[in-house]
Nucleic acid binder design. Structure first.
Length: 516
RNA sequence: GUCCCCAUCGUCUAGCCCGGCCUAGGACACAGGCCUUUCACGCCUGCGACAGGGGUUCGAAUCCCCUUGGGGACGCCA
């Protein structure tokens, strides 16, 4: 009676469509907005996105916001923001599951009317007690289906008495009934119908449950491949049952193994902190594609053993069939400042930072410098060549983009810090440095061409003249001009910094030395 | 407790489907060395795994069974 003619028609169309022509691929990422976008979610989104792009299909974003109490707008924003940053652009959506609530109810009504579902008047308290008791006796609890055989008259009578009811799906109970499907990753999965309980699809307040909403939305969105975490594996037989009862061809399922922590527990912000959130990687200076590349390899491998791929290369080579079946571990150990996240993830980022084209890298560096008041527009005009040479020189030892504004600060500002250890090691080493450095500055100042070769000549000459090892003045100079004891080859570095700044910093360092 | 899934170096994994090419390959991490003005990069070397037990077979990491271990699901959560 609630089932209107037009809705009926809609489902009918769906049925016809699904078993006619081979449709193009449609996949979706369907997060629930109850928190942040995390590593696991991003990986799921990535695999869906890759599959869509590979097959020339459509990637849909659907926000499953039916849990009104826990869903927040902030969370939606963060998820969209995260996906955008990762570069996982969607073609449709974001759709919101709550928008389809009526359709979910209609599907439930249809199931009810056609005898695939029934009203259950058992109270929640009653069931909870049964469950608890079963648990204490260590026996499996499954709803016994006692309301399944209520006659229409009994149902009517209960309703008139004002009893509340939920709608349960009536799982086929023929002797050897089996629900089976071919998972694109796990292969054939079979489950005996007798091991599936009559699950609830509509609450007593008539609101649909996820298991129903999700399946109906996938049908409505004409999803062809459901690529999701393996935690959805156990739900799948139930959803297949729903599809079958609705007369809809189920999508192809591809369950991907889960990513756990090094104790094989679920990753969560609560216990692991920000390191599981995507926004953290953005803040810590990760390149979005480096993260994607790393994530892609958590549960998937290429046929040729390669690990680094451009976007297009990965899209080209990615395939559902090479997703493996065992869970992987996100190798994060807390309290290690160097390996603050999975070391392999850092390795990927560092490799991208030092090997990607300067053209692709520059926007990230620009943004980082801007955020730290180190940017100057001339880096894109008059000083462009200098800027490019500079980041190319310093990037080889950087791991993350933030390094450009911290470790690399001395290149873009005179206001940088001196590492106390470096000062002690390189500047306090020899009191004569207070004389050598200004002398060096004078020598450098005479150079008409400030290039690495000429600069080195000045250094070597001075070392010989003073009868000291060149390393002494080289290392002292490094600290004097950069504040650090580590960095690129010194002569190249000085050439980049330019005569004026070098001479000034060399002379100023005398004060530091004299304070020793 | 029931059902489902999984099992190769510390971690990510190749090999498994279609047994022999596997004294098990690669990557990260770690250790040592080379290069070097430092730190990186790079290069070289080392460390390091087929969970255990049965079968099948001339031959098993690969096939089968059991055990063990791990994960997931079992909500009027999603």
């Amino acid at each position: 009676m609630f089932w209107t003619q037009s809705r009926e028609h809609e489902f009918q169309k769906m049925v016809e469509k699904s078993d006619s022509d081979q449709q193009s691929v449609r996949v979706r990422f369907a997060p629930s907005p109850t928190g942040y976008l995390h590593i696991g979610g991003a990986r799921t989104a990535l695999y869906n996105w890759l599959w869509a792009r590979k097959s020339g299909g459509v990637f849909i974003l659907r926000i499953e916001d039916t849990d009104m109490e826990r869903s927040t707008q902030d969370s939606v924003e963060e998820i969209l923001e995260g996906l955008r940053w990762l570069g996982l652009d969607w073609d449709e959506g974001p759709y919101f599951q709550t928008q389809n609530l009526e359709k979910h109810k209609e599907a439930a009504d249809k199931l009810l009317r056609e005898g695939h579902a029934y009203r259950c008047f058992c109270s929640k308290e009653d069931l909870d007690n049964q469950r608890k008791e079963a648990e204490s006796k260590k026996i499996a609890f499954m709803y016994d289906g006692r309301c399944r055989n209520l006659t229409p008259e009994q149902v009517q009578a209960n309703i008139e008495k004002g009893m509340t009811s939920v709608v349960r799906f009536g799982v086929p109970r023929d002797a050897h009934s089996v629900v089976a499907f071919d998972d694109a990753v796990y292969g054939r999965i079979e489950k005996r119908a007798r091991d599936i309980e009559d699950f609830v699809i509509l609450r007593s307040d008539k609101s649909p449950l996820y298991i129903l909403s999700n399946a109906v939305d996938d049908a409505l969105d004409k999803i062809t491949h459901v690529i999701r975490g393996a935690d959805g594996l156990a739900n799948t037989p139930k959803q297949i049952l729903i599809y079958n009862a609705l007369g809809i061809e189920p999508p192809i399922f591809a369950h991907m193994p889960l990513t756990l922590d090094n104790k094989k527990a679920k990753l969560s912000k609560r216990v692991h902190g920000e390191v599981v959130t995507i926004s953290y990687y953005r803040r810590r200076g990760f390149l979005p594609w480096a993260l994607c590349n790393f994530l892609a390899l958590l549960g998937w491998s290429s046929p040729d053993g390669r690990e680094f791929f451009s976007r297009d290369e990965l899209i080209d080579i990615f395939d559902l069939s090479r997703i493996n079946r065992h869970n992987s571990i996100f190798n994060y150990v807390s309290g290690d400042p160097k390996n603050w996240t999975d070391p392999k993830a850092i390795h990927f980022n560092a490799t991208y930072v030092r090997s990607m084209s300067l053209n692709d890298l520059t926007p990230y560096v620009k943004n980082e410098l801007k955020n730290n008041d180190l940017w100057s527009d001339c880096y894109e005009s008059t000083e462009k060549e200098w800027f490019l040479n500079t980041i190319d020189l310093i990037r080889t030892r950087y791991h993350v983009i933030t390094d450009f504004s911290t470790k690399g600060r001395f290149c873009f500002s005179d206001d940088f810090e001196f590492d106390p250890k470096a000062v002690i090691k390189n500047l306090y080493q020899d009191a004569n440095l207070a004389k050598y450095l200004p002398e060096l500055a004078r020598g450098l100042n005479t150079l008409p061409v400030f290039d690495p070769e000429k600069i080195e000549g000045i250094f070597r000459d001075l070392a010989e003249k003073k009868q000291v090892k060149a390393g002494l003045i080289i290392n002292a100079s490094r600290t004097a001009v950069s504040g650090s004891s580590v960095g690129p080859g010194l002569f190249e570095l000085l050439a980049i910094l330019g005569k004026e700044r070098v001479v000034k910093r060399l002379n100023q360092s005398v004060r530091l030395i004299e304070n020793a």
